[in-house]
Computed example of a mutant assay.
Amino acid sequence: MTELEKMIAGQLYNAGDTELVAERSKARALFVEYNAAGYDDKETKTAILKQLLGCFKGNIDIQSPFYCDYGFNITAGENLFMNFNCIVLDCAKVTFGDNVFLAPNVQLYTAYHPVIAAERIKGPEYAAPITIGNNVWLGGGVIVCPGVTIGDNTTIGAGSVVTKDVPANVLAAGNPCRVIRAL
């Protein structure tokens, strides 16, 4: 099994593998080009996103700067908006539903490391997917941790650290993020 296959399968993998390094380098070249494109140059930006992202439907608006690890693990439904300075560490799948809005400085992390220091310092890491449902808004500075699913029609308050799943139709906030009330 290749390191890429292990990464996608959620197994311990070596991120320093030459294939993975090459894929990250390819993504970096594309997001550097994307970030350098003019604000009004929608044609160029869309063409770059088609090369960078796994797939997306219809309207997508990602404000520069934007950063990701691989790009190919990111999929989006209709009408995705990411404000300035969003980061998606997509070592595992990151799935956005329809009508998802990310405020500035939102960070989604699929990568994580062993908690035992002796294992961690050897270098290999894990990744777990993140799923964001339909009609979700992530407020400014939200951090979403590996393996989290956020349900449809949910709002996550600014500055929240989402460490576990959040159900549909709620307002959730805090560090760690918790449900405040139903919507």
Rank of each mutant, 00 (worst) to 15 (best):
G139A: 07
Y67W: 14
G174S: 05
D61Y: 09
V161E: 02
P124K: 00
V161T: 11
R181N: 01
N105P: 02
E33Y: 01
A158N: 08
F84P: 00
G133Q: 06
A76C: 08
G16M: 07
K45M: 02
V94D: 01
T154G: 07
T18M: 00
R24K: 15
D17V: 01
F72I: 15
T155G: 02
R24T: 11
I8E: 05
Y70P: 06
Q11K: 14
Y67V: 13
R28N: 06
S25H: 04
R181E: 05
I156D: 09
V170C: 06
R24G: 11
R120M: 13
F31T: 09
P176Y: 04
L183A: 09
Y34I: 12
A118H: 06
Y34M: 13
A117L: 10
G159V: 14
I87A: 05
D165V: 11
T110I: 04
F96D: 04
I130M: 05
A128M: 00
C145I: 00
V94F: 03
C145F: 07
Q63V: 14
A173R: 14
Q63S: 12
D69Y: 00
V100R: 02
G38N: 08
Y39S: 01
T163Q: 06
A182V: 09
T155L: 15
I143C: 08
T44W: 04
L138H: 11
L102V: 14
N135D: 14
I180D: 00
H113L: 13
C55D: 10
V21F: 02
D152I: 03
A182Y: 08
N59D: 11
A128Q: 01
T110P: 00
N134Y: 08
V100G: 14
D17S: 10
G16F: 05
L30E: 10
L89H: 01
D165S: 12
N135M: 06
V179C: 08
R178A: 12
D61M: 05
R28G: 07
I156L: 13
A36G: 09
I180M: 14
G77M: 13
D61R: 02
G141N: 13
K50M: 08
A168P: 10
D17G: 03
V88C: 02
L102H: 07
E125H: 00
A37K: 12
L20N: 05
G139L: 10
A9E: 08
F84I: 12
V136S: 01
Q51D: 15
Q63Y: 03
R178T: 12
M7W: 01
N105S: 15
F81H: 12
G147T: 11
G71T: 03
T2E: 07
C68N: 10
V115D: 05
V166P: 00
E23C: 11
C55G: 11
T149F: 04
V162R: 03
